[in-house]
């Protein structure tokens, strides 16, 4: 099994009639994702690439029994889109939108509390379980089904890691883009727990960056609970303090938010921290050996 997404996941696209929403709906469909509906208020009754459009998430869920929603709406509408999913009881919400105000996220996180609903993002590339389902904006063709789970705060840097793994014949179970914002629905520890329990996943890659303390929290968890090898890469070793590096959450604001501080705590927790993304496949080849080719069981 993979985590979060599988071949049965039924997906609705919020903002499906927009430029990004319609483009990525086509991409997801061609990957084999079960996109069962779309939502754009006022455009119910239309179709995008053969996918029916609804006015509300509640209507879309009722007609399609969707369990997953992906959000491509502009930042100023993202909060309402997420709140609508929570109200409708969508199990998994993946928010791609970049630039959502922090206080909007505080409100969304408050609404999520106690519901059991999982939010991934915002400001993330999405989630892919290779060969099964892709929900987001990542290029599907660079992935390959296999035993490595990937968790990342970045988009294109994750592609780099995936590309290198696939190039060396090492496939992936699920790749989760957490997002580059300071408040995100799912953090390293949440996904580490899922990967530790997942049969298909034999090894894990964590791609972190400067800002916040999520890598430290993850290190604390791994110290006690790790049952599978974890490889880490942290971006931003040359980033100057006090400057926001593209991502809203990527800023060195204290001694603990530097790349070196994160590399150190991860190493102390038994994580193999590499300097170059292309070193990752060799680490797994050494640590996992034959297990790497066990993906046929899934």
């Amino acid at each position: 099994m993979s985590i979060l997404l599988n071949q049965n996941s039924k997906v609705i696209v919020q903002g499906i009639t927009g430029r990004d929403g319609s483009f990525h709906t086509r991409q997801m469909l061609s990957y084999g994702t079960k996109v069962v509906g779309g939502v754009t208020p006022g455009k119910g009754g239309q179709e995008v690439s053969g996918v029916p459009v609804f006015n509300t998430v509640a209507q879309a869920k009722e007609k399609t029994t969707a369990d997953t929603a992906v959000i491509y709406v502009p930042a100023k509408f993202a909060k309402d889109a997420m709140l609508e999913d929570i109200k409708a009881g969508i199990n998994l919400i993946i928010c791609i939108t970049e630039g959502v105000p922090v206080l909007d996220m505080v409100e969304v996180m408050g609404a999520l509390k106690g519901t059991g609903i999982r939010l991934v993002g915002p400001n993330c590339p999405g989630v892919i379980s290779p060969g099964k389902s892709k929900v987001g904006i990542m290029p599907g063709h660079i992935h390959k089904p296999g035993p490595i789970g990937i968790i990342s705060r970045s988009g294109t840097l994750t592609y780099e890691v995936v590309y290198s793994l696939t190039y060396h014949g090492v496939g992936q179970s699920t790749c989760v883009g957490l997002g580059g914002d300071p408040i995100i629905g799912t953090r390293f520890v949440d996904v580490l727990e899922m990967f530790m329990r997942d049969d298909q996943t034999k090894g894990i890659v964590m791609v972190g960056e400067i800002g916040g303390e999520d890598e430290q929290v993850a290190a604390g968890y791994l110290k006690k609970e790790a049952t599978k090898p974890v490889v880490g890469f942290i971006a931003g070793r040359t980033a100057p303090p006090g400057k926001r590096m593209g991502h809203a959450g990527a800023i060195i604001s204290s001694g603990t938010s530097t790349a070196e501080a994160k590399r150190t705590v991860l190493k102390e927790a038994g994580v193999v921290v590499v300097d170059f993304p292309e070193e990752i496949p060799a680490v797994f080849k050494e640590k996992l050996g034959e297990c790497l080719h066990g993906e046929k069981r899934s």
Partner: peptide
Amino acid sequence: IVNGAGLAMATMDIVNL
């Protein structure tokens, strides 16, 4: 010149290394 914040930071780091 890089696309994506994470890859842009990683590129700087590797230039440095």
